[in-house]
């Protein structure tokens, strides 16, 4: 159920990318898509009433594995967020440069390339 909500969020982002004419709105659409995937990854490791995956001296491994949330998706999400940050930064920089050149954020007015 909650996974379906992630998919809905993903689709919202994709809708933004596909239909919007403003470059900044397209960037926001991509951000929403990335966050939907990150949310999905974190939810994969989620467990209700779980504890942080840090093992103490006292806890037994068996009990730990029954209680703790899965740490691997969290590591994956950290990497994915950092990569996403890099991509978004580059994308925004290009938007600004495009605005300097064309004087607009509207992609229908940027039509030097065709064919």
């Amino acid at each position: 159920m909650i996974y379906a909500l992630c998919l809905v969020l993903f689709m919202v982002g994709l809708y933004g990318v596909v239909t919007k004419k403003n470059t900044v709105k397209i960037v926001i659409g991509i951000i929403i898509m990335e966050y939907a995937v990150n949310l999905f990854l974190v939810l994969l490791g989620y467990r209700k009433d779980g504890v942080a995956p840090i093992i103490d001296e006292g806890t037994s491994v068996l009990k730990f594995s029954q209680l703790a949330v899965d740490p691997l998706p969290q590591a994956l999400v950290l990497t994915a967020i950092v990569i996403g940050l890099g991509v978004i930064a580059l994308m925004v920089a290009i938007c600004i440069r495009l605005y300097e050149r064309y004087g607009t954020f509207d992609i229908t007015e940027m039509r030097r390339l065709k064919g």
């Binding site: 898509m33 994308m91 940027m110 030097r112 390339l113």
Partner: peptide, 14 residues
């Protein structure tokens, strides 16, 4: 170049 790069970036990120 910027226009092509933006197009490539958006489709590449998708």
């Amino acid at each position: 170049e910027l226009e092509a790069s933006f197009k490539y970036l958006v489709l590449g990120s998708v």
